[in-house]
Design a protein around this nucleic acid. Structure first.
Lengths: 152, 152
DNA sequence: CTTAACTGTTATTATAATGGTTGCAGTTAG
DNA sequence: CTAACTGCAACCATTATAATAACAGTTAAG
């Protein structure tokens, strides 16, 4: 599920540079994934208020926030991201040994701590920072390559 | 690969409580995995100087460090852990669009930052802290359940 | 008021990542 | 010399993840 975060950040930066309304297909072309996957991610961003969304013909997604005020933590929170996770558990709960029965909870706590640490870091990074890494000092409306929607 | 970290922490805490030399099979029993996997992890911990190892009959692993002075960051470093990683890359490098071609590197930087954040957090946690979460104030030699080696 | 371009969502299929298993050469104590 | 080990590496099984397909619902435009 980590890739949803990548898709979200990519989509937000791209949306901002392109401006206006883009369909999931345009975003998918640029991100290199499929439209259904993009829609799933964008629906969550819209639910969190990070973007505007519109169904129907000439619908799609639109970014209207201030890039300086949107941190990557907000993006992660919108997706309920678990940056670090482990599907695997050591030990067994019904074991007489306290180590074996207790290690699962201990690791849960550590994973929680690591996720918080990631969140704290991502709070220090804004979409403007990401944009600047890519575009340097080019103005916000600098031309961005991309495909056109079916309805022109 | 995240589970190697779990195995390492579990093994270290267990080794310390059991004391003496334990074979990979005893550790695997308690951790609930297979001996080969345990050996792979323990070899790395030994290489980093976190444990003592001995081949041959009545061989195995032994922990002799001060639990207060071993942080989980050292454990992670011994395994060259990437706590956060993403095998998936968005965009394509040879694309005219700066967003599509540049997002891969941007995400690499973010992943690096998140890993550093995890490392900084794990540096604040020692093996003694983990032990205390499990055993509270029971003395270090409090009985721990476990299987015996073949050579008794 | 019908059509075409969309979103939101779910179900299903491929593919990649991860853990389990087996086997064997090398080491050591007895 | 033998039995109990480690350290590797190769291979198989399982699970997680991404891709694909499909469809009901929404909207703009003729």
């Amino acid at each position: 599920m980590t890739s949803e975060f990548t898709i979200a950040v990519h989509a937000l930066v791209y949306l901002r540079r392109r401006g206006g309304w883009l369909a999931s297909e345009q975003l998918a072309d640029n991100i290199c994934t499929n439209p259904a996957r993009v829609r799933k991610v964008m629906a969550q961003l819209a639910h969190a208020g990070l973007i505007d969304t519109r169904e129907g013909a000439v619908g799609g997604y639109h970014f209207s926030r201030d890039v300086n005020k949107v941190t990557l933590k907000e993006v992660g929170d919108a997706l309920a991201m678990q940056y670090v996770n482990s599907s695997w558990r050591s030990g067994k709960l019904d074991c007489d040994c306290l180590v074996s029965s207790g290690m699962g909870n201990v690791m849960d706590g550590l994973l929680h701590g690591m996720n918080d640490a990631c969140g704290a870091y991502l709070q220090t990074v804004t979409l403007a920072d990401i944009d600047h890494q890519i575009f340097g000092d080019l103005p916000p409306d600098a031309l961005v390559q991309g495909t056109q929607r079916k309805t022109g």
